[in-house]
């Protein structure tokens, strides 16, 4: 039953694959960004999972406790979350601009417009 103990890693894998699939399979730009977020979130969970020590508590110095969880991955992931938010913001801003320029956020429709432009010039 050891694999059950690695339960959170299975969640990570499932989330990662879901996110990855959405990024690749969806033609809608917003959905792509959503997929990207899911993908990144899986990594965040991965980092937090690996810092957890069985029986460990929060890393605050208390008399009588010897096992602490590692705080460093949490700090790292805070940074990564900020990065992720920034990326989402830029991605969404781009999607808005694309919508202004093409009137659509569907990848195939945009490509069709570009091809038509190329044919006309």
């Amino acid at each position: 039953m050891e694999w059950l103990g690695l339960f959170n890693y299975w969640v990570v894998v499932v989330l990662m694959m879901t996110g990855f699939y959405v990024v690749i399979a969806q033609g809608n730009l917003i959905k792509k960004i959503v997929g990207l977020n899911i993908f990144q979130t899986s990594v965040f969970i991965f980092y937090i999972s690996l810092s957890k020590l069985e029986g460990g508590t929060a890393p605050i110095y208390v008399e009588g406790i010897t096992a602490y969880s590692n705080p460093l991955p949490h700090v790292l992931i805070l940074t990564a979350i900020v990065v992720g938010v920034a990326l989402t913001a830029v991605g969404l801003a781009l999607a808005v601009r694309i919508h202004e320029a093409y009137g659509s956020i569907e990848e195939d429709e945009i490509q069709a417009q570009d091809e038509e432009d190329a044919r006309n010039t």
């Binding site: 990024v23 730009l29 792509k32 990207l36 990326l87 830029v90 991605g91 781009l94 999607a95 601009r97 694309i98 320029a101 990848e107 945009i110 570009d114």
Partner: peptide, 11 residues
Amino acid sequence: RALLSSFNYLI
């Protein structure tokens, strides 16, 4: 087209 190129690069 720069917009979509940038978006794809982002992904």
